[in-house]
Design a protein around this nucleic acid. Structure first.
Length: 879
RNA sequence: GGGCGCGUAGCUCAGUGGGAGAGCACUCGCCUUACAAGCGAGGGGUCGUAGGUUCGAAACCUACCGCGCCCA
């Protein structure tokens, strides 16, 4: 891999030629190490430059770099590199999340392999074990980020469980507690019977699963009432039957009691607005301890709650079902009811929405238990207002609707987890029922009978503090002063609620109303080349490291960025990555060609008055491109940035400018010198523009081309309006038109590129391109008319140029006729369309003047074309 | 059930009132002295359907059909 590029020392101008192909592997590793060791990514809070800060969404310590990270990081890195070049003091702060349940599960699985549970070790030993795991196998992703080229400040790496962040967690917990925004209550919460912990609403994934719907008759005769349920076993904990108050069918039963089968208990029939009379029989069983809706009904009607299962979802009610798991108890209960003739109807399969633990996929069990909650009402209000009043901008703006839908209807947040890995809740319970919340600088109460709460906090509690806890909060650090609020938060729209809303709530609360970031830039999910979700079972998962290995980090990044249209998902495929690799190679070869031809960045750029039209044209195009890229970056339009640069580099620079410049570069005079300077300038600027997205190849080429130390710190190109030259652009368009038309003729005639053809060109002056005749001849492979020149074909080109060609009698008349007929059809269609519009009085009367003028122009062009085509057809020998 | 979004070339997507575009794929011709990971040329779309607004609709409005996502 190294033999390709090792002909020069890393920092100097080339001592030999660049290889014919770009080999990313060696370049990437060498450049990355150099960047870090030279401190290019270090942020300086004492700098006078304006700040630009991004905090990296902390990946899980258990994670490895997947393609979603690759997209997220590519965007953040592009922004960071752009801003560095634009003269900002950039902080991109890396770190990791301790990922409570996920990490604990990893270590528990390891223990299970040795037939051990965490309880065998005990809390202290277990947590020690987790730390050990973290030290040995955690954080693999950090090394992988380097492969991608992430320009993070490694000296500031943080971990949500490190000392400083733990202090931040305790500080904010205490504040919220003292402000009565944290409370403890017996509530129904989502419970994972496998992880044995509470889950917040967002840690539950819903899916439509096959189940059963069983209709059960409670009571006898006229008093009988039928209820339907997908979870028959919970009937053991029913404490009422509810019907809608206006439901005529049951009016006579409201207020009466009915016997609950299998238990002998008598339960009331209550009326509640919440019941949907149209669903099933219109009567529902009420199990307050095992269903969130039923819990609400229970509260309203003051019903008792009977817990019938333990934390592992095993039935605890004394009797025949005791000791059965919920899935064993369900058929057992149904069988017992059937024996009593109480099963009225059964529907299997019955598809309904079922909640699953987002970590282990186990079906969650709603469970009544004592947990800690955050009262989100005031916090969510502030989080919504910050976006409503424009202090925080969500990009793309359409996604703000989703954000509002969430923050404006937020439930209180269950923050306690029955885990051992995480921030332990800083609350102590005394022997006489005292409850003390301990702040970071306070000593916990000691003495007989005091015990700390056993639970830890939800992982998102600490990651919600990330934008300021990582900068040293609660201390008033220089870093916070310089870099808070952060500039942009880049993340996928899937964690808008998980994380963004939490950071908004905590940031505004902890930082006296100052938002944690000015802009939230949301991107989509990475999908395969057919827009399908990537999944292991489908076998379409892309490993970014694999692509980096085979195609290079730049190609991988370019592919991702090129697909990143605002608000929509990002499809990628290996073919497209190959295309990106090809693009990197194109840049490599263009630079190689330029160096071989003496391109330089020494000295001032010649004044436009001294330059050829070709040079003026490419400089003019460059100005437009710089302006477009600036606008596109400012609008977070990464796909468009890539597209603009791809076309400028490939079409304008490589296909036209380099080709047009070859004859000049072959010379040695002053004109050649000027073109070498322009070529050097254009490539220098192009490599700068591409650096944010393709950092490695641009660094390698730019340092070789310019002799500069690094492009990472080179100034971002600025538009020079004096170099915009409409006349040069028009002239080039006319030139391109002639060349393209001749090429088309040659191709249609089956003339090989090696076959020179004599031709006479007329009308170049009319088109304003008479000075370019030699260029046209070289690009279109046309020789000057020799003695005995006889035109066998005539090309009449829009703009007034005529090319008479002597094909030495080999003209394919049929092909030429077909070509001309096609052109005529197109021109006729165009002319008819224009005449139609201009003949429409309403159009001429109501359309804006410039639109009408444009149509008139088009008609004139089409008519002139028709005339020329007719003449050419006329002149064609009859077959 | 509630909300949001999307249907444009074979595939993936830009285009949001005034000549249907890109990348890839495809066809043809080329080892033209930077690059075959390349060069040149070309074919291909009644812009989901039906109405409406407008001088003019792929774009705006309404309905419908199909697909996706989020929430319950």
């Amino acid at each position: 891999m190294t033999e390709a590029t090792d002909t020069r020392t890393p920092d100097s101008r080339p001592t030999g030629a660049l290889s014919a192909q770009y080999q990313p592997g060696e370049v990437e590793q060498r450049r990355y190490e150099q960047w870090v060791s030279r401190g290019y990514f270090k942020a300086d809070e004492t700098s006078d430059k304006p700040p630009f800060a991004i905090v990296l969404p902390p990946p899980n310590v258990t994670g490895s770099l997947h393609v979603g990270h690759a997209l997220d990081h590519t965007i953040q890195d592009a922004l960071s590199r752009l801003k560095r070049m634009q003269g900002f003091e950039v902080l991109w702060l890396p770190g990791m999340d301790h990922a409570g349940i996920a990490t604990q599960n990893v270590v528990e699985r390891q223990l299970a392999a040795q037939k051990l549970s965490r309880h065998d070790l005990g809390r202290e030993k277990f947590v020690e074990q987790v730390w050990k795991w973290k030290a040995e196998s955690g954080g693999a992703i950090l090394g992988q980020m380097k492969r991608l080229g992430d320009s993070v400040d490694w000296s500031r790496e943080r971990f949500t469980m490190d000392e400083g962040l733990s202090r931040a967690v305790q500080t904010i917990f205490k504040r919220l507690y003292d402000d009565e925004l944290i409370y403890r209550a017996n509530r129904i919460i989502n419970w994972c019977p496998r992880c044995l912990t509470a889950l917040s609403d967002i840690e539950v994934d819903h899916s439509d699963d096959d189940g059963e719907l069983v209709s059960i008759r409670y009571g006898e005769g006229d008093n009988a009432i039928v209820v339907a349920t997908t979870r028959a076993e919970t009937m053991l904990g029913d404490t009422a039957v509810a019907v809608h108050p206006d439901d005529e069918r049951y009016k006579h039963l409201v207020g009466t009691e009915v016997e609950l089968p299998l238990t002998g208990r008598r339960i009331p029939i209550v009326a509640d607005e919440h019941v949907d009379p149209a669903f099933g029989t219109g009567a529902v069983k009420v199990t307050p301890a095992h269903d969130p809706n039923d819990f609400e009904i229970g509260q309203r009607h003051d019903l008792p709650s009977i817990t019938i299962m333990d934390e592992r979802a095993v039935v605890t009610v004394p009797g025949p079902f005791e000791g059965l798991d919920r899935y064993e108890a369900r058929p057992a209960v149904v069988a017992a009811l059937r024996e009593q003739g109480r099963i009225v109807a059964e529907k299997r399969p019955y598809v309904h929405s079922v909640g699953h633990c987002s970590r282990c996929k186990t079906t969650v069990e709603p469970r009544l238990s004592l947990q800690w909650f955050v009262n989100t009402t005031p916090l969510a209000q502030a989080a919504g207002d910050a976006v409503r009043d424009g202090r925080v901008r969500i990009e793309p703006p359409e996604l703000a609707k989703r954000y509002f839908a969430w923050v404006d209807n937020m439930h209180d947040w269950c923050i306690s987890r029955q885990l051992w890995w995480g921030h332990r809740i800083p609350v102590w319970y005394g022997p006489n029922g005292e409850i003390v919340c301990v702040g970071p600088d306070e000593e916990p109460p000691s003495g007989e009978g005091w015990k700390q709460d056993e639970d830890v906090l939800d992982t998102w509690f600490s990651s919600g503090l990330w934008p300021f806890s990582t900068m040293g909060w609660p201390e008033q650090t220089a870093t916070l002063k310089k870099f808070y609020p952060t500039s942009v938060l880049v993340t996928g729209y899937d964690i808008l609620f998980f994380w963004v809303a939490r950071m908004m709530m905590f940031g505004l609360y902890a930082m006296d109303g100052v938002q944690p970031f000015d802009v939230v830039n949301l991107h989509g999910m990475v999908r395969d080349g057919h827009g399908k979700k990537m999944s292991k079972s489908f076998g379409n998962v892309v490993d970014p490291l694999d692509w980096i290995e085979r195609y290079g980090a730049d190609a991988t990044r370019f592919t991702l960025a090129r697909g990143a249209n605002p608000g929509s998902d990002v499809p990628i495929s290996e073919e497209w990555c190959q295309g990106s690799r090809n693009f990197a190679n194109k840049l490599w070869n263009a630079t190689r060609f330029a160096l071989m031809n003496g391109a330089t960045v020494e000295g001032d750029l010649p004044a436009p008055s001294e330059l050829s039209t070709i040079d003026k044209w490419v400089l003019s195009r460059l100005q437009h491109v710089v302006g477009e890229v600036d606008e596109q970056f400012a609008a977070y339009e990464y796909a468009k940035v890539c597209d603009t640069l791809y076309h400028f580099a490939w079409d304008d620079v490589c296909d036209w400018y380099l080709e047009l410049s070859k004859p000049v570069l072959a010379g040695t005079g002053a004109e050649a010198a000027r073109t070498r300077r322009v070529l050097g300038h254009v490539l220098d600027q192009l490599l700068r523009l591409l650096h944010p997205v393709m950092p490695f190849v641009t660094e390698e080429l730019w340092t070789v081309l310019t002799g500069g130390e690094t492009v990472t710190r080179a100034a971002w190109p600025a538009v020079d309006a004096a170099l915009i030259d409409d006349a040069a652009e028009e002239e080039l368009a006319a030139l391109q038109k002639v060349v393209t038309e001749v090429r088309r003729f040659r191709s249609d005639q089956g003339l090989k590129p090696s076959q020179r053809v004599s031709a006479a060109l007329t009308g170049l002056g009319t088109a304003g391109i008479d000075t370019h005749e030699p260029l046209i001849r070289s690009l279109a492979r046309l020789d000057a008319p020799a003695e005995g020149f006889t035109a066998t074909a005539t090309l009449a080109i829009t703009g007034g140029v005529t090319v008479d060609l002597d094909t030495r009698g080999t003209i394919d008349v049929a092909a030429e006729r077909a070509r001309l007929e096609k052109d005529r059809a197109a021109a006729e269609k165009e002319a008819a369309q224009c005449r139609g519009k201009l003949g429409n009085e309403a159009f001429v009367g109501k359309a804006p003047e410039h639109v009408v003028a444009k149509i008139k122009d088009r008609l004139a062009t089409a008519e002139a074309d028709l005339e020329r085509i007719a003449a050419a057809l006329e002149a064609l020998p009859t077959a």
